[in-house]
């Protein structure tokens, strides 16, 4: 199916994008839908982008649902392992 469901949030950080160049990312778009490249019918897709730099200023990942859940847990574990005063 096309889920049409899209979650968009502002974000702040950097990503390595087209041409191997780092750039500042301002937006994160998250959706569960058909991938462009991954060999799965549906994937959890994340676009980290800076729309002000044009459509190609984007880093895209497509993860299976289980991989996405494992990534969420890993992100949480990494944050939890750091001293709280550094992650607030």
């Amino acid at each position: 199916m096309c889920t049409y469901a899209t979650v968009r949030i502002p974000t702040d950080g950097s990503a390595k994008g087209p041409g191997g160049a780092w750039f500042h990312v301002t937006d994160a778009t998250v959706y569960f839908d058909h991938p462009v490249h991954a060999m799965a019918e549906h994937t959890l897709n994340i676009d980290l982008s800076d729309p002000s730099r044009g459509p190609s200023a984007r880093v895209a990942v497509e993860l299976t649902a289980s991989a996405a859940r494992e990534l969420m847990a890993a992100v949480q574990a990494a944050l939890d392992s750091a001293p709280p005063e550094l992650t607030t």
């Binding site: 968009r8 676009d47 729309p51 459509p55 984007r58």
Partner: peptide, 9 residues
Amino acid sequence: DDAAAVSRA
């Protein structure tokens, strides 16, 4: 794919 991402966003 980039255009589709912009459209979706």
